[in-house]
């Protein structure tokens, strides 16, 4: 069992060049903020390091933050062997939302990332199969979970607002 501070220190030691930050002002768990294009390397480390063994990607949620002009992804990691948990967050530019994929680390990231792409339009680089998942494949009216999303008037000739 490791606390967030210890995990943060371990990450700091192993990724000296990275831009890491620990946010402890949360009402619940602390959050480690990482850079979107390095998240795969960090997660590989978290997954493989014998003292961490984060083998379970509990959750992956995309969040739209239009005020800051950002799209964020929250990663909730857990370990079924050591039973500790950690939350990671990456933020990316709203106009060019690119995050490295985690499908290489956890297979379960596949659909979570597709969902984040589908609903928020976050592009996961090198994802093997980045298609829409919950919305129709030919939905071209944008990404519904973005705060500035508006329903289209028509979809395939059918009226959308009823």
């Amino acid at each position: 069992m490791k606390k967030a501070e210890e995990i943060f220190q371990l990450l700091k030691d192993n990724f000296p060049a990275s831009n890491l930050e620990l946010k402890t002002d949360q009402p619940t768990e602390a959050i480690i903020i990482a850079s979107p294009l390095e998240i795969d390397k960090i997660c590989f480390f978290l997954h493989d390091a014998p003292e961490l063994l984060f083998d379970d990607l509990m959750n992956l949620s995309g969040v739209d933050e239009p005020k800051a002009g950002l799209l964020a992804v929250y990663y909730h990691l857990g370990s079924t062997k050591i039973k500790h948990k950690i939350t990671l967050k990456v933020s990316t530019d709203r106009n060019k939302p690119e995050v490295s994929t985690l499908t290489e680390v956890w297979k379960s990231a596949d659909w979570h990332e597709r969902e984040a792409y589908d609903l928020l339009g976050i592009i996961f680089l090198n994802h093997p199969d980045l298609r829409r998942i919950l919305m129709p494949y030919d939905w071209d009216a944008g990404y519904p979970l973005r705060k500035d999303y508006e329903n289209p008037e028509f979809y395939q000739g059918m009226k959308v607002p009823y």
């Binding site: 619940t28 949620s61 929250y74």
Partner: peptide, 29 residues
Amino acid sequence: VGNVYARVENPRGDLGYFIMSDGSTSPYR
């Protein structure tokens, strides 16, 4: 303001809720 992740053992497995609050009466996400 803040966020929370909690999970329970549902009959089908780990059910997790990630709730983000912006301080209003509705969740942000």
